[in-house]
């Protein structure tokens, strides 16, 4: 099968930026081309791991933000 997309297109596919026609070509390649499958799996696993990286700010700073909104204009609540 002739590959009609590039590796960059695979990145666009993972991020949902490909057209329906491009999706068909890539999905077909994923079914029958081992090299594409492996590349897709590696990229997808890495992006999934990136999803897991999440940091939560401290409650104190969140409360300051909420208080600033409640007392709009009073910057003393931010200190």
């Amino acid at each position: 099968m002739i590959k009609t997309f590039t590796e960059n297109d695979l990145v666009r596919f993972i991020y949902g930026e490909t057209s329906p026609i491009e999706n068909n070509a890539i999905e077909n390649a994923l079914m029958c081309n081992q090299e594409t499958q492996e590349m897709y799996r590696d990229l997808k696993e890495t992006t999934s791991m990136l999803d897991s990286v999440s940091k939560t700010p401290g409650k104190k700073v969140v409360n300051k933000i909420l208080n600033y909104s409640k007392n709009f204009g009073d910057i003393s609540v931010l200190k």
Binding site: E7, V11, R12, D42, L43, T46, T47
Partner: peptide
């Protein structure tokens, strides 16, 4: 931009 993203993912991997 796409190439940089692809290399970022490959390098991370």
């Amino acid at each position: 931009a796409l190439g940089r993203m692809r290399y970022a993912l490959i390098n991370l991997r």
